[in-house]
């Protein structure tokens, strides 16, 4: 039989296998393993002949199919049956069934009305996004990944100088905590971006970032972001007095 299948159409070996089973009108729970293995290998071979790079996962599945096939052909001794379970196909069947379930779920998702595709929201509404309820102190409102991402973006914005005099700067986290505290005493809320002016050196950025994390840990400020890509805001949680009285000995912070 001729097989005309584009491998890239399939998201993986399970997807391809499922397709073969369906097109042969087989029952997933009762796969004719010899037939399927043959077809599967034909497709993989074709891909190789066309000099296409067959992803390793497809080869792993080929090996598994052959393994199952060989076990089905061998007479089953009682010992072996006990050791390896009754039907050598069982494991594969389970995986196929579960995979099929998520494939169907993916199709269901695709049919749900999606933002920016089927449903739209007012664009660029410049409202105070912090109206959104943040679960108080339960967790940071933004994830660590987002915070690290925002920091990474800032770092890439900082130009690397080619020539410069090397001066060892002695930046202390507590100085920066004091500086941030001062600014937050004046304004109860500051955009994260405002802390990183263009003149900042890499070390200054790092120390500022550490100071922000430290303040968050001490529950003096809260870090919030409402929408993806929107600005990250620092909000003062402690009273202005508390912040001002915050005297930190460098050694309590564990930074060098």
């Amino acid at each position: 039989m001729t097989v005309d299948i584009k491998l890239e159409k399939f998201s993986g070996p399970l997807d391809l296998l499922l397709h073969l089973i369906k097109s042969q009108e087989m029952d997933i729970c009762d796969i004719r393993i010899v037939e399927i293995t043959e077809q599967y290998l034909t497709i993989i071979d074709q891909m190789k002949q066309l000099d296409l790079d067959v992803a390793g996962e497809f080869l792993v599945m080929a090996a598994q199919l052959i393994h199952i096939k060989s076990r089905m052909l061998l007479p089953v001794s009682e010992e072996l049956a006990e050791e390896e379970g009754e039907d050598p196909r069982a494991e594969l069947v389970k995986r196929l069934l579960e995979y099929q379930r998520y494939k169907q779920a993916a199709q269901l998702f695709d049919r749900l009305p999606q933002l920016e595709r089927d449903i739209f929201l007012p664009q660029g509404s410049g409202t105070d996004l912090l109206l959104e309820d943040a679960p108080q102190d339960a967790e940071l409102t933004i994830s660590l990944y987002q915070l690290a991402n925002a920091f990474h973006q800032l770092m890439t914005q900082v130009k690397t100088e080619v020539f410069h005099e090397v001066i060892r700067e002695n930046l202390s986290v507590s100085d920066y905590i004091a500086m941030i505290s001062r600014r937050l005493t004046e304004h109860s809320r500051i955009c994260l971006r405002d802390f990183f002016q263009s003149g900042y050196q890499r070390t200054e950025l790092v120390v500022t970032f550490l100071a922000l994390l430290e303040l968050t840990r001490m529950r003096m400020i809260r870090i919030e972001q409402v929408n993806s890509f929107s600005d990250i805001w620092l909000t003062r949680v402690a009273s202005a007095d508390q912040l001002q009285q915050l005297h930190l000995a460098e050694e309590t912070l564990d930074y060098e």
């Binding site: 998201s11 070996p13 995979y99 998520y102 494939k103 993916a106 595709r117």
Partner: peptide
């Protein structure tokens, strides 16, 4: 648009969370 692979992965995570990358890869085979 989200690709078929992305939707598939998203479906696995949505229904099985919390889930590790190894679990996702076992279920998807890739």
């Amino acid at each position: 648009r989200l690709s078929a692979a992305a939707l598939e992965t998203l479906a696995i995570i949505a229904y099985r969370q919390p889930v590790t990358r190894a679990e996702i890869e076992y279920l998807r085979g890739v």
